[in-house]
């Protein structure tokens, strides 16, 4: 049965490839049709059953008896993973349609800020076109000549590199770098002696900062390193050791405590979703 779900090479088995597509579409429309035909009060039950079966795979795979670390469901792991990849691909289409609808409407109506929307549409189309050209015709020459007495060869691949590596990648790094500035202004604003808790917060932060860099470790560099039993005690007062102590003995138990709570919360939420016990506007909505 696993063989049925394996990816098919289009060039080797074109018939099987198209057959699987037709079968997939037929199953999809069949399920949608059944869902439409079923009376309203039963639709939520059908969705609950499919939700349960979907989650049951991983639960069963974990609990079913295994021999040498494998049971009968392990071989379908990559099939299920591929299903997630396919659903993710559908999601990209959804996002693109939603994005283009909004921004094309803004450009057509010349609403305030329509220039930004036009820039987005042009960037989107440019990246799509050159992304596809880079995949299927990377070495096709677009321009060949001289510019400022330098020979220039522009291919699809070089344009894509310029846009992706030169553009997107560097813009991402630039935005990430903004965090450094925000940390500075947030730290300046937040670390104030307003109460006992904020004083403790500030003290701990200062110690960790001082203990992490050379500028801070110089302050207690005159204390012994603690390589021999006689100097071990005094080495505990070196700023980097105090910082490590704070991280290991104070921060770690706090993180563990929060982690316990969050993990239980996630387990409870996951159980509610799996068993369709979840309530709220989206889950109570009639299908």
């Amino acid at each position: 049965m696993k063989h049925f779900f394996q990816p098919i090479n289009f060039h080797e088995h074109p018939g099987a490839f198209y057959g699987h597509i037709v079968l997939g579409l037929a199953v999809m429309f069949g399920v949608l049709g059944i869902l439409q035909a079923v009376p309203r009060q039963y639709r939520k039950w059908i969705i609950a059953v499919f939700t349960f079966l979907g989650g049951l795979f991983y639960v069963a795979e974990f609990f079913l008896p295994a021999h040498s670390g494998k049971n009968s469901l392990n071989k379908y792991d990559d099939v299920v993973a591929n299903i997630f990849v396919v659903v993710g691909a559908y999601a990209i289409g959804l996002g693109v349609i939603s994005l283009l609808q909004l921004h094309v409407r803004k450009v057509v109506r010349t609403a305030p800020g329509w220039g930004n929307s036009a820039a987005l549409i042009i960037s989107f189309l440019g990246m799509t076109v050159f992304g596809l050209l880079n995949e299927y015709a990377p070495h096709r020459l677009l321009f060949h000549g001289r510019l400022f007495s330098q020979g220039i060869r522009v291919t699809n691949s070089s344009v894509f590199d310029f846009l992706f590596t030169g553009g997107i990648a560097n813009f991402g790094s630039a935005i990430f770098s903004m965090i450094a500035f925000f940390i500075a202004s947030a730290a300046y604003r937040a670390f104030r002696v307003r109460s006992l808790e904020s004083s403790l917060l500030m003290t701990a932060a200062l110690i960790i900062m001082l203990g992490s860099v050379g500028f801070g470790t110089i302050l207690t560099n005159w204390l012994p390193l603690g390589n021999d039993p006689k100097s071990e005690f005094w080495a505990n007062f070196r700023i980097e050791n105090i910082a490590q102590w704070l991280l290991l003995q104070v921060n770690t138990p706090a993180q563990r405590g929060i982690l316990f709570g969050i993990t239980l919360g996630e387990l409870a939420m996951a159980l509610r979703l799996w068993l369709s016990l979840e309530r709220g506007s989206y889950f109570d909505k009639e299908v």
């Binding site: 940390i183 300046y188 670390f191 104030r192 001082l210 801070g216």
Partner: peptide, 16 residues
């Protein structure tokens, strides 16, 4: 990083 931390500590001290 050393310089930046020194700057942040200075700012925190000034602010306080």
């Amino acid at each position: 990083l050393s310089f930046v931390y020194a700057l942040i500590i200075l700012l925190v001290v000034i602010g306080n």
